[in-house]
Each structure stands twice: as C-alpha cells, then as structure tokens.
C-alpha cells in the first residue's frame, strides 16, 4: 500500500465564532484526483487553503509527504509550498508582468534558476497549455480561459507534487470552460495528484478518483464518483445533488 501524500487529521478552522471546518480527517494518495464539491460557504476554499497553510488551522494537523506542516517554521513551510501548486478562481496573475515573466518569477527567485533556464522552462510549459504564442502578452490582454491556463503553467513551473484547484472555471465564460478542463484532464492523465474544488460535475464524473462532499464543516461523504452520483448516502448530499442536477 502506498503512503498518502497528504494526510489531514482532525483539522478544524474557525474565523472568530464562525467554525468553518469542524473535524476533518482524510487522506490523498499519490496520483489521486480528488474532487471536492459542496454548497457555497461550506468551507471548501478554506479547506484547500489549509492544505498549503495559506490559512493556519485552528487545530488538528496537515501532513504533507510525512511532515506535519503545522509544526514547521516559516522557511520550511515556504519550501513545502513549492511542492503544492495552487490555481485560483480569479487567476491572480501578476498584472505588471508578461505571461513569460509570470511563469519565470518563482523559479528564478525561489529556485534560483538562471534566466535562460527559466525562459526555456516557461516556453515548455506554455506549449503544454497551448499558449506559447502569448508569451509576451500582458495578462490584461488575455481571455479568462487563457489566463487560467497561464496560471496553471505558472504553478507547474515549480514542479509540484500536488496541484490544488479552487473553482478554476467558475469565473469563466461557458465557452472557455472546456479548454481549461482539458488541460486539467491532461494533467491528471500524466499522473498528477490533484485536489479540485469545482462545480463541474462532468469533470468530477470522468476524471475524479474520489469525490468528497463537504458541507457544514465536515466531509460528509467520500466515495467514488459513480457511487456518489448514483447513490448518495446523506440527505445533505441528496438535497445538494437534486439542486445542481436539475
């Protein structure tokens, strides 16, 4: 049996009196694609951000590659974040840099790659997301789908072991959702470990190994997509599915 790459143990997170995550214990194995779904405000983003410590858990622990992140010092956390790429709903590209510079920044400043190596890497990744012809464009001139693909390439540039996606297609016009999902599918096919928060049920059905249904601060169900969609266990999940599958 393989060792899990991410292990979450009794994770809880509150913002003041608002207990967003109550008690979460789950694990992700290498190469797995996990899709997290659930109602708005259920804490999905918070959960994802706790995985790479953008949010500090109130209690419990997050182990990555066998190390408990919550006990590490800042420097070590920074190093481990390199191994967890993150893609945001709002892209968060750096608007003052070209596409190429967006991708080169972290490899150069964190991994200390020289300019030539970083440029080469960036072009490779841009080809992978079919955007090499936009290398010198500024983010403001890109469509949403293009911007998100650049953001994926930027995260991949650090050669991460895991990719975290927080609703990567929610901000996109419908006709652009496909191009982003296909890049993600490609990534999954290459064996990338992924945790994806999304409302794209088609993607969940066809790509996910496991679906985690999250509501009210708990992972209510953890099942294969076939099982989850055809045979949800909790009323909460049934209710949720009936609403989105209408």
């Amino acid at each position: 049996m393989t060792k899990p790459i991410i292990e979450v143990k009794n994770l809880a997170k509150s913002f003041g009196k608002n207990d967003v995550l109550k008690d979460i214990t789950e694990q992700v194995n290498p190469g797995q694609v996990i899709v997290v779904i659930g109602p708005s405000g259920g804490g999905k983003s918070t959960f994802l951000r706790c995985l790479n410590l953008l949010e500090t858990p109130t209690s419990g622990e997050v182990d990555f590659d066998g190390q408990n992140l919550t006990t590490l010092d800042t420097k070590k956390v920074n190093e481990l974040r390199e191994e967890m790429g993150m893609v945001f709903q709002g892209f968060n590209l750096f608007p003052n840099m070209t596409v190429l510079e967006n991708i080169k920044l972290a490899p150069m400043k964190v991994k200390h790659l020289d300019d030539a190596a970083a440029t080469k890497l960036a072009h490779e990744l841009l080809s992978q997301v079919n955007l090499d012809d936009h290398a010198d464009a500024f983010p403001s001139s890109l469509s949403g789908g293009q911007a998100q693909r650049v953001a994926i390439a930027r995260a991949l540039a650090m050669n991460p072991k895991v990719m975290l996606f927080d609703e990567p297609t929610s901000a996109l016009d419908p006709e652009m959702v496909g191009e982003v999902l296909s890049v993600m599918q490609e990534l999954a096919n290459q064996g990338m470990t992924m945790v994806v928060v999304t409302h794209e049920m088609g993607f969940a059905k066809s790509v996910a190994d496991k679906v985690w249904f999250m509501a009210d601060g708990y992972i209510q169900e953890n099942n294969t997509p076939e099982e989850f969609f055809s045979n949800p266990q909790t009323d909460r999940a049934k209710d949720f599915l009936s609403k989105i599958l209408m």
């Binding site: 390199e82 964190v110 650090m158």
Partner: peptide, 13 residues
Amino acid sequence: GQTEAARSLGMSG
C-alpha cells in the same frame, strides 16, 4: 490574491 498566488508558489513574505 496577488500575495496568495506568490506565497502558493513558495515565495517568502
């Protein structure tokens, strides 16, 4: 979001 993106790439504060 700019800070979050940079931090998620492993950049220090």
